[in-house]
Protein backbone atom coordinates (compact mmCIF):
# COMPACT_ATOMS: atom_id res chain seq x y z
CA UNK A 1 0.00 0.00 0.00
CA UNK A 2 1.29 3.43 -0.91
CA UNK A 3 0.10 6.54 0.87
CA UNK A 4 -0.92 9.70 -0.91
CA UNK A 5 0.64 12.60 0.98
CA UNK A 6 -0.22 15.54 -1.27
CA UNK A 7 -2.87 16.20 -3.87
CA UNK A 8 -3.22 19.33 -5.89
CA UNK A 9 -5.66 20.11 -8.66
CA UNK A 10 -3.61 21.46 -11.55
CA UNK A 11 -6.60 22.01 -13.82
CA UNK A 12 -10.15 20.66 -13.96
CA UNK A 13 -9.23 17.15 -15.10
CA UNK A 14 -5.58 16.97 -14.09
CA UNK A 15 -4.29 16.19 -10.59
CA UNK A 16 -0.86 16.21 -9.01
CA UNK A 17 -0.07 13.54 -6.42
CA UNK A 18 2.84 13.01 -4.09
CA UNK A 19 2.94 9.39 -3.00
CA UNK A 20 5.12 7.73 -0.37
CA UNK A 21 7.42 5.26 -2.12
CA UNK A 22 10.88 5.65 -0.56
CA UNK A 23 12.57 2.75 -2.35
CA UNK A 24 11.37 3.96 -5.76
CA UNK A 25 12.27 7.58 -5.00
CA UNK A 26 15.81 6.52 -4.13
CA UNK A 27 16.39 5.01 -7.57
CA UNK A 28 14.25 7.16 -9.85
CA UNK A 29 15.76 8.97 -12.81
CA UNK A 30 14.33 11.42 -15.34
CA UNK A 31 12.32 9.72 -18.07
CA UNK A 32 11.35 6.64 -16.05
CA UNK A 33 7.84 5.56 -15.20
CA UNK A 34 5.94 3.64 -12.57
CA UNK A 35 3.03 1.23 -12.87
CA UNK A 36 0.13 1.85 -10.51
CA UNK A 37 -2.88 -0.22 -9.49
CA UNK A 38 -5.43 1.62 -7.40
CA UNK A 39 -7.37 -1.19 -5.74
CA UNK A 40 -7.95 -4.92 -5.64
CA UNK A 41 -9.95 -5.00 -8.89
CA UNK A 42 -7.80 -2.35 -10.55
CA UNK A 43 -5.94 -2.35 -13.83
CA UNK A 44 -2.20 -1.75 -14.00
CA UNK A 45 -1.35 1.45 -15.85
CA UNK A 46 1.95 3.22 -16.48
CA UNK A 47 2.52 6.85 -15.44
CA UNK A 48 5.73 8.69 -16.22
CA UNK A 49 7.37 10.27 -13.20
CA UNK A 50 6.73 14.00 -12.83
CA UNK A 51 9.24 14.23 -10.00
CA UNK A 52 10.62 12.41 -6.96
CA UNK A 53 12.33 13.28 -3.70
CA UNK A 54 14.72 10.71 -2.30
CA UNK A 55 15.11 12.47 1.04
CA UNK A 56 11.38 12.83 1.54
CA UNK A 57 10.77 9.34 0.13
CA UNK A 58 8.09 10.39 -2.33
CA UNK A 59 7.38 10.21 -6.03
CA UNK A 60 5.19 12.74 -7.86
CA UNK A 61 2.69 11.81 -10.52
CA UNK A 62 0.43 13.93 -12.68
CA UNK A 63 -2.62 12.18 -14.05
CA UNK A 64 -5.38 13.32 -16.35
CA UNK A 65 -8.79 11.75 -15.86
CA UNK A 66 -9.37 9.67 -18.97
CA UNK A 67 -10.29 6.16 -17.88
CA UNK A 68 -11.45 4.16 -14.88
CA UNK A 69 -8.02 4.03 -13.23
CA UNK A 70 -7.31 7.75 -13.52
CA UNK A 71 -10.84 8.60 -12.35
CA UNK A 72 -10.35 6.30 -9.36
CA UNK A 73 -7.01 7.95 -8.63
CA UNK A 74 -8.58 11.42 -8.87
CA UNK A 75 -11.23 10.38 -6.34
CA UNK A 76 -8.55 9.74 -3.70
CA UNK A 77 -7.22 12.28 -1.22
CA UNK A 78 -4.20 12.81 1.01
CA UNK A 79 -4.14 10.06 3.61
CA UNK A 80 -5.68 7.54 1.22
CA UNK A 81 -3.66 4.66 -0.14
CA UNK A 82 -3.21 3.14 -3.56
CA UNK A 83 -2.74 -0.60 -3.68
CA UNK A 84 0.42 -0.83 -5.78
CA UNK A 85 3.15 1.36 -7.17
CA UNK A 86 5.91 -0.39 -9.07
CA UNK A 87 9.09 1.15 -10.39
CA UNK A 88 11.21 2.86 -11.36
CA UNK A 89 10.68 1.24 -14.77
CA UNK A 90 12.04 1.84 -18.24
CA UNK A 91 15.35 3.23 -19.44
CA UNK A 92 16.13 6.71 -18.03
CA UNK A 93 16.46 9.66 -20.41
CA UNK A 94 19.87 10.16 -21.92
CA UNK A 95 21.19 13.16 -20.04
CA UNK A 96 24.32 14.74 -21.45
CA UNK A 97 25.55 18.16 -22.42
CA UNK A 98 24.22 18.24 -25.97
CA UNK A 99 24.71 22.03 -26.22
CA UNK A 100 21.27 23.44 -26.95
CA UNK A 101 18.08 21.42 -26.63
CA UNK A 102 14.37 22.01 -27.10
CA UNK A 103 11.94 20.38 -24.66
CA UNK A 104 8.35 20.21 -25.88
CA UNK A 105 5.51 19.35 -23.50
CA UNK A 106 1.92 19.08 -24.58
CA UNK A 107 -1.07 18.69 -22.24
CA UNK A 108 -0.17 16.43 -19.30
CA UNK A 109 3.11 15.74 -21.11
CA UNK A 110 4.35 18.94 -19.49
CA UNK A 111 4.76 17.01 -16.23
CA UNK A 112 7.26 14.35 -17.37
CA UNK A 113 9.12 16.94 -19.45
CA UNK A 114 9.90 18.93 -16.30
CA UNK A 115 12.45 16.56 -14.65
CA UNK A 116 14.08 15.92 -18.03
CA UNK A 117 14.46 19.63 -18.77
CA UNK A 118 15.80 20.15 -15.26
CA UNK A 119 18.38 17.36 -15.65
CA UNK A 120 19.43 18.67 -19.06
CA UNK A 121 19.79 22.18 -17.64
CA UNK A 122 21.81 20.90 -14.69
CA UNK A 123 24.46 19.38 -16.94
CA UNK A 124 24.90 22.63 -18.82
CA UNK A 125 22.55 22.57 -21.78
CA UNK A 126 20.85 25.67 -23.09
CA UNK A 127 17.22 24.62 -22.62
CA UNK A 128 14.42 26.09 -24.70
CA UNK A 129 11.05 24.82 -23.53
CA UNK A 130 7.84 24.91 -25.49
CA UNK A 131 4.68 24.01 -23.60
CA UNK A 132 1.21 23.90 -25.03
CA UNK A 133 -2.36 23.13 -24.07
CA UNK A 134 -5.72 23.28 -25.75
CA UNK A 135 -6.85 26.15 -23.58
CA UNK A 136 -5.71 28.42 -20.73
CA UNK A 137 -7.44 26.40 -18.02
CA UNK A 138 -5.52 23.28 -19.07
CA UNK A 139 -2.11 24.85 -18.64
CA UNK A 140 -0.04 24.12 -15.54
CA UNK A 141 3.54 24.34 -14.28
CA UNK A 142 4.49 27.36 -16.38
CA UNK A 143 6.56 28.71 -13.49
CA UNK A 144 8.18 25.38 -12.83
CA UNK A 145 9.18 24.91 -16.47
CA UNK A 146 10.37 28.50 -16.62
CA UNK A 147 12.71 27.88 -13.68
CA UNK A 148 14.64 25.19 -15.60
CA UNK A 149 14.59 26.85 -19.04
CA UNK A 150 16.66 29.53 -20.69
CA UNK A 151 13.65 30.38 -22.81
CA UNK A 152 10.01 29.38 -22.41
CA UNK A 153 7.38 29.55 -25.13
CA UNK A 154 3.74 28.89 -24.21
CA UNK A 155 0.94 28.15 -26.66
CA UNK A 156 -2.79 27.51 -26.42
CA UNK A 157 -4.72 26.02 -29.33
CA UNK A 158 -7.58 28.46 -28.84
CA UNK A 159 -5.49 31.51 -28.02
CA UNK A 160 -7.00 32.00 -24.54
CA UNK A 161 -3.49 32.46 -23.15
CA UNK A 162 -0.09 33.34 -24.57
CA UNK A 163 0.55 32.45 -28.18
CA UNK A 164 -2.36 31.03 -30.19
CA UNK A 165 -1.52 27.83 -32.03
CA UNK A 166 0.06 24.45 -31.55
CA UNK A 167 3.57 23.63 -30.32
CA UNK A 168 4.94 22.63 -33.72
CA UNK A 169 4.80 26.23 -34.97
CA UNK A 170 7.25 27.71 -32.45
CA UNK A 171 9.26 24.47 -32.66
CA UNK A 172 9.82 25.07 -36.35
CA UNK A 173 10.73 28.72 -35.74
CA UNK A 174 13.24 27.85 -33.04
CA UNK A 175 14.90 25.30 -35.32
CA UNK A 176 15.05 27.82 -38.16
CA UNK A 177 16.39 30.52 -35.88
CA UNK A 178 18.86 28.53 -33.80
CA UNK A 179 21.01 26.22 -35.92
CA UNK A 180 22.83 25.00 -32.79
CA UNK A 181 19.90 22.90 -31.52
CA UNK A 182 21.17 19.34 -31.34
CA UNK A 183 18.26 17.55 -29.72
CA UNK A 184 14.52 17.83 -29.27
CA UNK A 185 12.59 16.01 -26.56
CA UNK A 186 8.84 15.89 -27.13
CA UNK A 187 6.32 14.44 -24.68
CA UNK A 188 2.57 14.69 -24.98
CA UNK A 189 -0.32 13.14 -26.85
CA UNK A 190 0.89 10.69 -29.52
CA UNK A 191 -0.43 12.91 -32.29
CA UNK A 192 1.61 15.84 -30.97
CA UNK A 193 4.77 13.73 -30.77
CA UNK A 194 4.20 12.54 -34.33
CA UNK A 195 3.91 16.09 -35.64
CA UNK A 196 6.89 17.29 -33.62
CA UNK A 197 8.90 14.47 -35.21
CA UNK A 198 7.67 15.45 -38.68
CA UNK A 199 8.58 19.08 -37.94
CA UNK A 200 12.14 18.31 -36.87
CA UNK A 201 12.84 15.74 -39.61
CA UNK A 202 13.82 18.24 -42.33
CA UNK A 203 16.25 19.84 -39.88
CA UNK A 204 17.88 16.50 -39.14
CA UNK A 205 17.71 17.11 -35.40
CA UNK A 206 17.58 14.05 -33.15
CA UNK A 207 14.07 13.90 -31.70
CA UNK A 208 13.29 11.83 -28.64
CA UNK A 209 9.68 10.97 -27.81
CA UNK A 210 8.28 9.19 -24.75
CA UNK A 211 5.65 6.69 -25.85
CA UNK A 212 2.50 6.08 -23.87
CA UNK A 213 1.38 2.63 -24.93
CA UNK A 214 -0.93 0.29 -23.07
CA UNK A 215 0.94 -1.95 -20.64
CA UNK A 216 0.12 -4.69 -18.20
CA UNK A 217 3.17 -5.69 -16.18
CA UNK A 218 5.62 -3.02 -17.35
CA UNK A 219 8.62 -5.33 -17.02
CA UNK A 220 8.83 -7.00 -20.43
CA UNK A 221 6.56 -9.90 -19.65
CA UNK A 222 3.54 -9.42 -21.88
CA UNK A 223 4.47 -7.48 -24.99
CA UNK A 224 1.23 -5.49 -24.98
CA UNK A 225 3.21 -2.26 -25.37
CA UNK A 226 5.09 -3.36 -28.47
CA UNK A 227 5.76 -0.72 -31.09
CA UNK A 228 7.55 -0.70 -34.38
CA UNK A 229 10.66 1.49 -34.41
CA UNK A 230 12.76 1.51 -37.56
CA UNK A 231 11.02 -1.71 -38.66
CA UNK A 232 12.03 -3.46 -35.46
CA UNK A 233 9.57 -4.50 -32.77
CA UNK A 234 10.39 -2.91 -29.42
CA UNK A 235 8.74 -3.11 -26.01
CA UNK A 236 8.04 0.39 -24.68
CA UNK A 237 8.32 -0.85 -21.08
CA UNK A 238 11.86 -2.20 -21.22
CA UNK A 239 13.37 -0.82 -24.44
CA UNK A 240 11.77 2.60 -23.90
CA UNK A 241 9.73 4.53 -23.07
CA UNK A 242 11.92 6.95 -25.09
CA UNK A 243 12.59 6.33 -28.75
CA UNK A 244 13.81 8.15 -31.85
CA UNK A 245 10.64 9.89 -33.03
CA UNK A 246 11.79 9.75 -36.66
CA UNK A 247 11.77 5.94 -36.55
CA UNK A 248 8.46 5.30 -34.78
CA UNK A 249 5.55 3.78 -36.74
CA UNK A 250 3.00 6.28 -35.45
CA UNK A 251 -0.07 4.86 -37.16
CA UNK A 252 0.55 1.51 -35.51
CA UNK A 253 0.96 3.22 -32.13
CA UNK A 254 -2.32 5.11 -32.58
CA UNK A 255 -4.09 1.88 -33.48
CA UNK A 256 -2.65 -0.04 -30.55
CA UNK A 257 -3.65 2.73 -28.14
CA UNK A 258 -7.25 2.19 -29.25
CA UNK A 259 -7.41 -1.59 -28.74
CA UNK A 260 -9.70 -1.39 -25.74
CA UNK A 261 -11.61 1.82 -26.60
CA UNK A 262 -15.04 0.22 -26.23
CA UNK A 263 -14.20 -1.71 -23.09
CA UNK A 264 -12.59 1.36 -21.49
CA UNK A 265 -15.68 3.46 -22.15
CA UNK A 266 -17.96 0.77 -20.76
CA UNK A 267 -15.85 0.33 -17.64
CA UNK A 268 -15.75 4.08 -17.00
CA UNK A 269 -19.51 4.49 -17.41
CA UNK A 270 -20.09 1.75 -14.86
CA UNK A 271 -17.60 3.27 -12.46
CA UNK A 272 -19.13 6.72 -12.78
CA UNK A 273 -22.65 5.37 -12.24
CA UNK A 274 -21.52 3.43 -9.19
CA UNK A 275 -19.36 6.23 -7.81
CA UNK A 276 -22.10 8.88 -8.12
CA UNK A 277 -24.53 6.63 -6.25
CA UNK A 278 -22.13 6.33 -3.35
CA UNK A 279 -20.84 9.86 -3.04
Amino acid sequence: MFKIVTKEKLCPVVDFFKIEAPAVAKKAKAGQFVVVRIDEVGERIPLTLADWDAREGTVSLVAMQVGTTTYKLASLNPGDYIMDLIGPLGVPSEIDNFGAVVCVGGGVGVAPVYPIARALKQVGNKVITIMGARSKDLLFWEERLNSVSDELIVTTDDGTYARKGVVTEPLKEVLERDKGISRVIAIGPAIMMKFCSLTTKPFGVTTIVSLNSIMVDGTGMCGCCRVSVGDETKFVCVNGPEFDGHQVDWDLLFARQRIYCDEERHSLELWKAHHCQHS
Binding site: V41, G42, E43, R44, T68, T69, V216, D217, M221, C222, G223, C224, Y260, E263, E264, H266, S267, L270
Partner: peptide
Protein backbone atom coordinates in the same frame (compact mmCIF):
# COMPACT_ATOMS: atom_id res chain seq x y z
CA UNK B 1 1.85 -14.27 -21.79
CA UNK B 2 -0.25 -11.16 -22.26
CA UNK B 3 -3.46 -13.08 -22.90
CA UNK B 4 -2.97 -15.31 -19.87
CA UNK B 5 -1.77 -12.48 -17.63
CA UNK B 6 -4.86 -10.46 -18.45
CA UNK B 7 -7.13 -13.44 -17.84
CA UNK B 8 -5.46 -15.08 -14.83
CA UNK B 9 -3.58 -12.40 -12.94
CA UNK B 10 -5.80 -9.44 -13.76
CA UNK B 11 -9.02 -11.47 -13.89
CA UNK B 12 -10.16 -10.04 -17.20
CA UNK B 13 -12.67 -12.90 -17.41
CA UNK B 14 -14.55 -11.01 -14.71
CA UNK B 15 -14.49 -7.68 -16.63
CA UNK B 16 -16.10 -5.18 -15.97
CA UNK B 17 -16.22 -6.20 -12.30
CA UNK B 18 -12.43 -6.18 -12.63
CA UNK B 19 -11.01 -3.26 -14.59
CA UNK B 20 -8.65 -5.07 -16.96
CA UNK B 21 -10.24 -5.76 -20.35
Amino acid sequence: NEFLTRVNLMKAYLFPEYDTP
